[in-house]
Amino acid sequence: MTRMPYYPGCTLKTKAQNYDLSTRAVFRELGIDLVELPRWNCCGAVFSLVTDDLLRQVAPITNLIRVQELQGTDSVDDPRLVVPCAMCFNVLKRANARMKDNPEDLKKINDFLYLESQPYRGEVQIIHTLELLKEISAKRIKEQVKFPLLGLKVSPYYGCNLLRPKDVAIDNPENPTLLEDFTQALGAEVVFNNRRLRCCGSYQTVSEKGLVADLVYDIIMGAARAGADLIITACPLCSFNLDWRQKEAMEAHSDHKLIPVIYYTELMALALGIGNGFGGEHFVDPQPLLQKFLEKEKGGI
């Protein structure tokens, strides 16, 4: 077991517990023990884009100090911080880069955080769970698959925060293949949705539900036209919008087709044979589809 620091983020502790639990289970199966940071705090969810508001960069940096603290103990082998939430990943990685590029800013923040046990030194490396899976390699994942997801038509959805802007992108921002490669390794059929990189509406969901529902309709219908049974995501906010805003999309568009949305780690857990019971609240329940699939698989063996 390789132990690595792990930052779950607020939503993975509440509305997206299924993402947290399935991520830990999947990596444990692949030989990686995710060690949750002690006393971590909310990263801020969105990276502040203006030049002069260092206060909004404090939250991600405090978390990176927690990583340093953990590295100083004997509880991790690989020092890189693993982040599954796409939005947290974007914020942490960009804040980290900003500190590296602006030592003056880092000094100001360290002065401000005088109660901390140590200043941030700007050396923590941040890695997204999908990048970690890429390192483990699709080949090794394929070897560990117990129930190949034969015949399941899966449409990967990337959203924004993993691919844009370029300097934080985990893959080619205009033509990524990470989720596709890995879905294929699980034995599922990848269907191509040409809306897979389109924004789901993000935080507009709080005040502009209808607008988000229209975007979601467009994305879901793209997947439906491609023949998808299921959509996979790596972001709790994409997941929420794509799933729950189908209610409004359905009310506004009579031809809307309901498609369930799950996290890629849940799909992986299914194929690796480590479970289907990670809970999670859904508007479009994926269980009928997944249950039917499991029965077919088990019947065949």
Binding site: V46, R56, C85, Q204, K209, L237, F240
Partner: peptide
């Protein structure tokens, strides 16, 4: 909405708006 909105949406919207 309070029942279903995830933390991430609230934090992001409050920071932006």
């Amino acid at each position: 909405e309070a029942k279903i909105l995830p933390q991430i949406a609230l934090v992001a919207a409050l920071r932006k708006f």
